[in-house]
Amino acid sequence: MDVETRATTASHSSQIEVVPTGRQLGAEIRNVDLKHLDDATFAALLRAFHDHSVLLVRGQSLSDQDLIAFSRRFGDLDWAPVQETGRRFVDGMPEIYIVSNVKVNGEAIGSLGAGEAVWHTDMSYLDTPPIASALYALEIPPVGGNTSFCSMYAVYDALPPDLKRRVAELKIKHDGTYNSGGFVRQGVTPTDDPRASPGAIHPLVCTHPDSGRQMLYLGRRRNAYLVGLELAESEALLDELWTYVARPEFAWEHVWKVGDLVIWDNRSTMHRRDPFDDHARRIMHRTQIKGTDRPR
């Protein structure tokens, strides 16, 4: 995976380079302007997305309209979720979700603050979770705020045969109480009983609709529950599964630069964010590609 792969497009004899990270997932796409994608270039980019689950494109200069237009090449977009502040979206652009610790006149302009964002899959508490998410860097702190991605294909493949048999038919309840920064979602009454918390139920082992590969669909740890098990049994089994997520060999860490865009497959990956100094500024704009079917 550490050998450069070159994909040729038909537009103006241009070429995009697909450069794998050398990890279990992720590739950098070079020699492309996301504001000007012809069909052949996008087809090559989409193949790379299915092959590598996470794509990084550096050096972009995108308006919110450009970010929305690029993201729509992958499918219809969700409106941004309600932030913990009660705000929903950028005025006039409901597809844009701001991830930021910046405050203006004492009011947060975005969500998630400067703390750690724990391993999670976006919006897995919905009946039909999003296909993918795209995150674009406008301002970044001098250090910290790195984002790591984990291959849930690799995690599933690493499970011992007896553990695969134990989880094969189980379903997992994905909690909708807290977001990845640990904040209570707008309008939700918190509970620490995973059997009583709001959230969707999905298969624990899913098959990716595009690749046909099996993957573990954990969502996030807090308030998760394996349906039908005693609570203590569910907790113990989930703790065991999460030890695989924590293994560094399944992950790739991205150190952000201004102008970076990262788009990831929300079905086959999880991601997390390092904390950073709250006196530094971090402004990221995110879009979310709408799901078309329940995990199966």
Rank of each mutant, 00 (worst) to 15 (best):
M1E: 00
E4D: 14
T8G: 12
T9Y: 01
T9S: 08
T9P: 03
S13Q: 15
I16R: 01
I16Q: 02
V19I: 14
L25Q: 09
A27N: 11
D33G: 13
L34W: 07
H36Q: 11
D38F: 12
D39C: 08
A40K: 05
A43D: 13
A44Y: 01
R47W: 06
D51E: 11
S53R: 13
R58H: 04
R58L: 09
G59D: 15
G59T: 11
Q65A: 13
D66V: 00
R72D: 08
D76G: 12
V90S: 11
P94H: 04
Y97F: 14
N101T: 15
N101L: 13
A117F: 08
V118I: 14
H120R: 03
H120I: 05
S124C: 12
S124A: 15
D127R: 04
P129V: 01
I131M: 05
S133K: 02
Y136V: 13
L138K: 15
I140L: 01
P141M: 03
V143E: 13
N146R: 10
C150F: 06
S151M: 07
A154F: 05
D157W: 04
P161D: 10
D162R: 10
L163E: 06
L170D: 06
G176T: 02
G176Q: 11
Y178R: 00
Y178F: 15
Y178S: 02
Q186V: 06
V188K: 00
P190C: 10
D193Q: 04
D193R: 07
D193P: 13
D193I: 00
T207G: 08
T207D: 00
S211T: 15
G212Q: 10
Q214S: 10
L216N: 10
R222Y: 00
A224R: 05
Y225I: 06
V227T: 15
A236H: 08
L237R: 10
E240M: 08
L241Q: 07
W242K: 09
A246Y: 11
P248W: 12
A251C: 12
A251L: 06
D265Y: 03
N266H: 04
R273W: 04
A280S: 15
R282I: 14
R286A: 07
K290D: 05
T292Y: 05
T292D: 14
P295C: 04
P295G: 05
R296A: 14
R296F: 11
